[in-house]
Amino acid sequence: MNRIGLIFSSILLLIVLASSTLFVVDQRQFGVVYALGQIKDVITEPGLNWKLPPPFQNVSYIDKRLLTLDSSDSEPMLTAEKQRVVIDWYVRWRISEPSEYIRNVGLNEAAGASQLNRVVRNAFQEEVNKSTVKELLALKREDLMAAVKAEVLDKVRGSKPWGVDVVDVRITRVDYVEAITESVYRRMEAERKRVANELRSTGAAEGEKIRADADRQREVTIANAYRDAQKIKGEGDAEAARVYAEAFGKDPQFAQFYRSLDAYKASFNGKGDVMVLDPASSDYFKVFRGGSAPAANSKK
């Protein structure tokens, strides 16, 4: 039983010893082997590797991927015409020489990002001081970013190389400081209001002109229609008079009777109108009794 325990303990010890001497380097990392605090080896290829057990040797890892550093402060910079602007930027960089990086920068990516942020900001400040706002926005934007990249590379590749490679430097935003921005926005708003008021005034004037022209055309159309209507009405009255005259000329007695009917119709225009007639002497009632109407020249 003691022998089985001894064998099991030995196997367990071997496993622990093997786990402390073997390590795996990921394809996204550098493996840095330290021997008593000094860099012993740098593993750049992924795979399984071995080392001496601690405390004789230790291993740490550094990211070998392309990293992004964004600007972390909004401190304004002065342009060539002494305008205070805020610039947002980002840098794409990677660790290329782990040994130099650890000796001259730090043990992790955060140390390099912190120092690189300071160098990039100083380079931007120097270049912005030489440029106007117009050049920052359009004319020299690409040249400025190229100049900043060159200055940063010159710094990280100096007498004490950082072991990093700066791939790209880009400006994402150029803006005035908040106080100036508010003033610019107010001027823009005032200008837009002025243009809007001018357009509204022009539109109102055009609207009045259109309405006046429409009213004039309406009056002309109504006058022409009234004139044509009166002309047609006059022609119709003349034709009616001619027809009446022609018809009444053929039978004067009937014409006299028809006019009497029109007179009676006009006399009983209201519901309460009353007329007292003698049926014996009224030509109207004689017709209803079967008699004939008097001649045109007879008296009622």
Rank of each mutant, 00 (worst) to 15 (best):
V156R: 12
I180C: 07
T21Q: 12
E142A: 09
A80N: 07
L144G: 02
E142L: 10
A245Y: 06
D273Q: 06
V42Y: 02
E109C: 01
E126A: 13
N104W: 03
D73H: 08
L13R: 03
K233V: 11
V59Q: 06
F8Y: 03
N122K: 11
G5P: 12
V287S: 07
A295Y: 04
R121G: 00
K130Q: 03
I210R: 15
V184K: 10
S60Q: 10
S159D: 11
T221Q: 14
G249K: 02
M145R: 08
N297M: 04
P53A: 13
V152E: 06
E97Y: 09
S60R: 04
V164S: 06
A190D: 10
R211A: 13
E182N: 01
K40H: 14
T44A: 08
A190N: 11
L107V: 14
Q217E: 14
A240Q: 09
F8T: 14
A295Q: 00
S96A: 07
I232T: 14
G272S: 15
Q83K: 14
Y244C: 11
K140Y: 01
Q29R: 02
N2G: 13
N297V: 06
K130V: 10
K64F: 01
E109N: 05
E142I: 12
V133S: 00
K231D: 08
S114R: 13
D88G: 00
I180D: 14
A214M: 11
T221V: 04
N104G: 07
N104C: 04
E178Y: 07
E219W: 03
Q83N: 13
V243N: 04
E75F: 07
I11H: 03
E208W: 13
V152S: 03
A18V: 15
G234M: 07
K286L: 06
W50R: 05
N122E: 08
A295T: 08
D41F: 02
P76K: 02
P252D: 07
L14Q: 09
Y284H: 10
S72K: 15
D41P: 03
K82H: 10
D143A: 15
V119R: 12
G270Y: 05
F30W: 08
A293G: 11
V169I: 12
I43S: 03
V152Q: 05
K140F: 00
G272M: 13
G270L: 06
L67W: 04
L137C: 02
A205G: 11
K250M: 02
K64A: 12
R259L: 11
L66E: 06
A212T: 12
I232F: 08
E127T: 12
I222F: 03
S72C: 06
E109F: 00
V166F: 00
R157M: 13
D168K: 14
P53K: 02
Y176E: 01
L78N: 09
D165F: 05
A110E: 09
A223I: 11
G290M: 09
K286N: 13
N117S: 15
D154K: 05
G106C: 06
V274S: 00
V119L: 13
F288H: 10
F257L: 03
R186G: 02
I43H: 07
Q115P: 02
E178L: 09
V59F: 01
K51H: 04
S282I: 02
I7K: 05
K140C: 00
K300I: 12
G112R: 01
D26T: 05
P76Q: 08
